[in-house]
Amino acid sequence: MLLVALGALVAYFAARAPVFLSSQELANILADFCSLILLGVGETFVIASGGIDLSVGSATSFSGVIGAFAMKALLDGHQNEAVVLAVGVAVCAGVGLGIGLVNAALINWARLVPFVATLAMLGAAAGMAIVLSNGEPVGLDPRAISYTTAKLGPFSYPSLVVIAVVAVAWLTLHFTRYGRYTFAIGSNEFAARAAGINVRRHVVSVYALSGVLAGLTGMFVYMRLGSGAPTAGLNDELQAIAAVVIGGASLYGGVARMSGTVLGTLIINTVTSGLIISNIQANWDQVAVALLIGLAATMQALRPGRRR
């Protein structure tokens, strides 16, 4: 179903601008996909567990800025490029992890609903990213940019890492006990607890995962731009949630498909790039995504037997 929608979109844009089917355009869409999909993957786990994480966009910005400060210090000290990138990945992931753990603490122990807890984090992380960076991109790393160019067909090396992470996440959500517990908690938290599942610990891990993936997104966007931008992930939480919902997930929890999230993300990326390529007024981008969400939500509601 989603595949049909994606195919139709690609056909439409290709008809308007044949260059849309080029390998170069595939590389463009792939770079965009990799900037969003990990947020969608994390959000898929969170939404499957019956929660929501509004902080992933600003976690992307904040971790990218902090990671950029760390990498800038190393670059200024003429550190080996591999060391710089490794430290960047670790710092970004670590900052994301911290954000996820604070979210989980607010939800589990301060008893805030996920919407409020992660909304507070959204504001805090976005504000800190701007204040700490003075509103300017941090660092200047053209070597990082060179790594994000297409090397194997349309794939860059970082994009292969991202795709591998998505594959592992897909296996984890749908084939492992971890994924099963995630769905069980989202489907009926009491039933999960009564079945002996440590719900609190699992919720901590889900938000931590979402945070780490946002951190890695921060690193990916850093590499794309060659700097840590304080607005790198601005509004991306909404795009990620949109992708998950378009992919067939229920915001009430218990229902989500990783393949759906992947296709939902691709659809959003295709619309964004397709509108530019076919030179349609860019403001339609938001309208198009909104329509897709509305359509997905309607299909969700009409699907029999999937309501609580």
Binding site: A17, V19, S22, Q24, E25, A27, N28, A31, D32, S35, P137, V221, R224, L225, A229, T231, A232, G233, L234, N235, D236, T272, S273, I276, I277, N279, A282, N283
Partner: peptide
């Protein structure tokens, strides 16, 4: 001027826009 596009304050979106221009 063949195209105008918006970044919505996001450098990554601006990056995407330029990538697409260079393709088109």
């Amino acid at each position: 001027i063949v195209s105008e596009a918006y970044s919505e304050s996001q450098p990554a979106v601006a990056n995407t826009n330029v990538n697409n221009w260079l393709t088109k």
